[in-house]
């Protein structure tokens, strides 16, 4: 009897080890494959803006900036939406439709990114261009942020599409925390004669760490998203000068340039090292997110 238990435990540990080995393998593969370019250029290729396969000269700065800019746009649009959606479904909407709202939100979070990309390219991008980007450029073009004459696919479009994609995910984290607030706190707030908005504001202060967690985890997703961004970001390797410039993100650079990479000796290492940079930034952001989410759990 004892034996079957031990064997079963070992059996389970084999599978756990496979999971751990995969994580280790992924990290190792990034390091090994990016090693050649670190050896040749040091860290300078991160801060250079050049993509010249013929001269085997690579620098990923434009893609890195593109990743930061598009995800910054995404998170600043997504957070107000995500918080509102969470409060709406947890506090304001009639109880009978809350389940439906949450289902719709969860469905949005599980929609394949290639569908977002297709829709973003053929529906969202032209609309944004006509009704938001072109007017902004016309009337506020003197501000450097809007100085480029927009075409439909650019960093701004990528940021808006990412915002749409990450809002439900971020919202569900906030919603769960909001629903977990002890009921007596809410009652206490109302009994002080607070209006509904004042109660909501107070409770939002109470779940600050969940909001931070939602923001960080969503930011991590936005930075790593590949195909949807690759379809609407313009895929142009120049240093962005405004929000309306066509650009690259690290992940869309990999998706786009990978098919050519075999033909050159340092492009593959350059792409792997881009992935390593992306991985490192993403890891820090996600660990921060997990840290804040753990604070919610331990307090709740």
């Amino acid at each position: 009897m004892m034996d079957s238990e031990k064997i079963f435990l070992l059996f389970l540990i084999v599978f756990v080890s496979i999971s751990l080995l995969i994580v280790a393998g992924i990290v190792t593969s990034l390091i090994i494959n990016s090693y050649p370019i670190f050896l040749r250029d040091g860290f300078s290729f991160i801060f250079k803006s050049v993509w010249n396969p013929v001269k085997e000269d690579y620098g990923i700065l434009p893609a890195l900036l593109g990743t930061l800019i598009s995800s910054a746009i995404a998170i600043s649009i997504a957070m107000p939406l995500a918080i509102s959606l969470a409060i709406f479904s947890a506090e304001i909407a009639p109880t009978s439709v809350r389940g439906f709202i949450n289902s719709v939100s969860d469905l949005m979070a599980s929609l394949p990114s290639v569908i977002y990309g297709l829709w973003g390219l053929y529906v969202l991008a032209p609309i944004l261009n006509q009704y938001i980007m072109t007017p902004l450029h016309q009337y506020l073009g003197f501000i450097p942020l809007f100085s480029t004459k927009p075409i439909p696919t650019n960093l701004f479009t990528a940021g808006v599409l990412l915002a749409i994609m990450i809002t439900p995910f971020s919202s569900s984290i906030i919603r769960e925390a909001y629903n977990a607030i002890p009921h007596h706190l809410k009652e206490a707030a109302y009994s002080l004669g607070m209006t509904r908005w004042e109660v909501i504001r107070t409770l939002l202060g109470y779940i600050k760490s969940a909001i931070l967690a939602g923001a960080f985890l969503a930011l991590g997703r936005a930075m790593g998203e590949t195909v949807a961004v690759a379809m609407v970001v313009g895929n142009t390797f120049t240093l962005p000068r405004s929000l309306f410039d066509m650009g690259y993100t690290i992940s869309s650079l990999i998706a786009n340039q990978f098919p050519n990479a075999e033909a050159y000796s340092y492009m593959m290492p350059a792409l792997y090292s881009g992935a390593l940079v992306l991985f490192t930034i993403g890891l820090i952001i996600n660990l921060a997110g997990l840290y804040w989410i753990r604070r919610v759990v331990t307090r709740g």
Partner: peptide
């Protein structure tokens, strides 16, 4: 903990692996 981080891995990195 590793799996929670892995969920958030950009999937293109899995492709590189």
């Amino acid at each position: 903990m590793f799996l929670q981080v892995m969920v958030e891995f950009p999937t293109i990195i899995v492709g590189l692996f």
